[in-house]
Amino acid sequence: MSAANGAAVASAETAAPGTPDAPTPNDRRGARRAVTAASVGTVLEWYDFFLYGTAAALVFPALFFPGEDPLTGVLLSFAVYATGFVARPLGGLVSGYFGDRVGRRRTLLATLVVMGVATALIGLLPTYEQVGALAPVLLVALRFVQGAATGGEWSGAVLLALEHAGTRRGIAGGLVSSAVYLGLILGNLAFIVLVAALDEESLLAWGWRVPFVASVVLIGVGLYLRAKVDESPEFLAVVREGRRARQPSRRRSANRGT
């Protein structure tokens, strides 16, 4: 940060209420809206991401990795689960690039759509019994897409919340971080309800698909909230000043080397 920018930040933080530099009611409402949208979207994204973990233990070994050894099926199912974590850094890089080029808000809307579509498609996949080895191949591909979308979502949601939060960045960051665990709880609850309500045959036949397909509705809620959020003020300032990099990753590398 330059000396001029540092002075501006310090001035904004110490300005008395009612001065031009103090946060206005509109600023505060915009910040609350941004933090809420980022947090809710994060809950939904991580619901989708962790939903696979529960299904990997309960139903995927029998549906996608059947064989004489049940333990092998479980291990293969969780190996696919790990694919999502492998893809997360790649998703963070891609989303970070587009976040710096086209804006945080648009990028987060895209990651939400990608995650929702991938999750719903998992719920619509044919099983090994229906199409053979193609079923686990498609499952791996969709899990990779899930992981990439989550990597972009996590970094982008935190960034959007912090850049809107002004001097309350600690609270904003904490709320978005807590949203991850709410997603985990929701993903587990979805299968707890199914296991309690359905017999094993119904669960394996169609019940397991419901939480995945329901992601379409949940993602619609997230899109509605995020569509109402203004673009990050820091990104808009970069655009106004003509400081947007054509190759953001290269620019960061050059800055680290200087």
Rank of each mutant, 00 (worst) to 15 (best):
L182Y: 12
A120N: 06
G84R: 02
A157T: 01
A157Q: 09
V113H: 03
A34R: 00
P17I: 07
E200H: 12
A161N: 03
A148K: 01
V213Q: 02
L139E: 03
G207P: 05
L51W: 01
F144Q: 04
G170D: 10
E201N: 15
V74N: 11
L204T: 11
E201D: 11
L225T: 06
G152C: 04
G18F: 00
T72G: 10
A38M: 09
A31Y: 03
L139N: 04
A10K: 13
A196C: 09
P25A: 03
V86P: 12
G257Q: 13
F85E: 13
R143A: 04
I122W: 01
L121K: 09
N5I: 15
A12D: 13
A157Y: 04
Y181W: 15
G99Y: 00
G174I: 06
L175Y: 10
G99R: 01
P66H: 01
A56L: 07
G53T: 09
A179H: 04
P248T: 02
L76Y: 10
T127Q: 09
P20A: 05
T54N: 08
A12G: 08
A227K: 14
R88S: 04
V239E: 10
A245M: 08
R251S: 14
W208Q: 05
G170S: 08
V113S: 11
R28Q: 14
V114I: 11
Y128T: 04
